[in-house]
């Protein structure tokens, strides 16, 4: 890398290059969609883990926690084997589409959401559940209220999951195939462009990715430090 490519990277950022924008859009699109799916499925499961007893709960919770460390390429491999032409869902023709990437990233994000939502809600006052029950709330009303009371934990969990998927390269590469204008994301583009020796776009994309990652972390810190619950005496 030399000074020229750094200057070129800054130029790309300043003029907000069309390809740079498209790649950034893809990355955010896939990460936001997959995080949303994981949040919609994972939050209720986290609530369930925190407030319901069921057989082998401890093992299930431990397993979920372990899955947080799932290697991205393993998820890629797993989803690949399902979606590839010869796989059980091969007929859907989803391989190397944005949908495939979103599915892979959602699988990656799900255990993170479940585990962190569970961890946060389990720390809520145990009397919350009884209070909701004695006040005559239905099961749905109780769950909604619990998520509201634990909203900091839930939002943190979702942001953490987003941070993980927006920066991952394994599933995006294996399931999306890094197709230009279609499934190319910041991370797959950096991997490719760097190998090609075209540093300028890589550096520009790296700066964008860092900005996003730092932004998410800043938001997380802000939430944790200034959460309304801390206003208690």
């Amino acid at each position: 890398m030399n000074l020229a490519s750094l200057i070129e990277a800054l130029r790309l950022l300043v003029v907000w290059d069309r390809e740079l924008a498209a790649i950034t859009f893809n990355s955010l699109h896939f990460a936001i969609a997959s995080t949303l799916i994981a949040a919609l499925i994972g939050t209720p499961i986290g609530v369930l883990f925190a407030f319901r007893e069921f057989p082998a709960k401890r093992s299930v919770v431990a397993a979920t926690h372990t899955l947080m460390g799932l290697p991205t390429v393993v998820v890629g491999l797993l989803v690949f084997s399902l979606l590839s032409r010869s796989g059980p869902l091969g007929g859907l023709g989803l391989m190397f589409t944005p949908t495939a990437v979103i599915i892979g990233q959602a699988v990656l994000a799900l255990p993170i959401v479940v585990s962190l939502v569970y961890g946060g809600l389990a720390r809520l006052d145990p009397e919350l559940a009884e209070t909701l029950q004695t006040l005559g709330a239905t099961r749905l009303q109780r769950s909604v209220k619990i998520v509201r009371e634990g909203r900091i934990a839930v939002v943190s969990a979702i942001l953490t999951a987003f941070g993980r998927v927006v920066g991952e390269v394994g599933t995006a590469m294996m399931l999306g195939g890094n197709i230009r204008w279609y499934t190319r994301t910041i991370t797959t583009a950096i991997a490719l462009e760097t190998q090609k020796g075209a540093f300028a776009l890589s550096v520009a994309l790296g700066i964008v990715l860092m900005t996003v990652a730092f932004g998410v972390n800043f938001g997380l810190n802000y939430l944790i430090r200034f959460r309304p619950g801390n206003r208690t005496i």
Binding site: E127, L128, T131, A137, K145, R148, E149, P228
Partner: peptide, 19 residues
């Protein structure tokens, strides 16, 4: 040690009626 929801006193007391 009653659990009060993280909202105003009014909202807490009104909640059982609102649901």
């Amino acid at each position: 040690r009653p659990y009060l929801f993280a909202e105003s006193v009014y909202a807490n007391v009104a909640w059982p009626l609102r649901i």
